[in-house]
Simulated assay, not measured.
Amino acid sequence: MLRIPVLVRGINNLSDARYCAGMGADGLIFTLDPTLPNAVTPTLMSELAGWVAGVKLLGEFDAQPVSEINRLVEECGLQEVLLHQLPATPLSVASLLTVNLADSLSSAQREEMAQQYSTIFPAGVGMVVALDSPELDLTTQQQLAEAAARFPLWLSGAITPDNVLSLLDTVQPAGFILSGGDEIKPGLRDFTELEAVFEALEE
């Protein structure tokens, strides 16, 4: 069991899907927007998802119309979605929205988001902040911790075996979003760094 929820994005092969589910990930994120790098088809996603159990299935989207997102939510059985842009109309499924670091730290922005997002995301929303560097200065850590105390804040990006426990203790995020990878060849994948992060988070 992990000390905090973990999602893994960029799932595009069976090795990743089965490994991450077996290591205790709460959810697998499939890039279903064809405009994003390394997108997978709904057919491939369904095939991979059929080999795992006990994990949430999420789709990742950028500029797709809400109607298309809703269609894929239904077709692929998605429980949540990860969005790169604020949708124009409400989404009925729980969502994670990527925001830049500066926006996540702004008090005024947080209050504005809380009011605006309650109607856009009636099923609930969390914010995802991507870290550009594995090292954060003390001020940024404190500001992220304050933001995490106000709304569900997920951290992605430069999450490493060396910083994951420090981020967990100082920021206390809602969870971490790790990145999957490509197979070296079918059935062969190097999980060294991903394994080290999972092991650091084991209770």
Rank of each mutant, 00 (worst) to 15 (best):
L2Y: 03
L2D: 03
I4A: 00
S15A: 06
R18W: 01
R18Y: 01
R18P: 02
C20I: 04
A21Y: 02
A25T: 00
D26P: 00
D26F: 01
D26H: 08
D26E: 13
L32Y: 01
L32F: 03
P34Y: 04
P34T: 05
P34R: 03
P37L: 06
A39G: 04
A39C: 11
V40D: 03
S46N: 13
L48G: 06
L48S: 07
G50R: 07
W51H: 15
V55Y: 10
K56F: 08
Q64A: 15
N70C: 13
E75V: 12
H84D: 13
L86I: 14
S92D: 11
N100Q: 10
A102G: 04
S104H: 09
S104N: 14
L105I: 07
L105D: 00
L105K: 08
L105Y: 00
S107Q: 11
Q109T: 06
Q109H: 14
Q109W: 14
E112Y: 12
E112T: 13
A114Q: 15
Y117L: 06
S118R: 13
P122R: 03
G124A: 02
M127R: 12
V128D: 03
L136P: 06
T139M: 13
A145Y: 01
A145W: 06
E146P: 02
F151W: 11
I159C: 08
L165C: 10
L165P: 05
S166V: 12
I177D: 04
S179P: 02
S179D: 14
G180K: 06
G181E: 08
G181W: 05
R189Y: 11
R189T: 11
D190Y: 06
F191K: 10
F198T: 08
A200T: 02
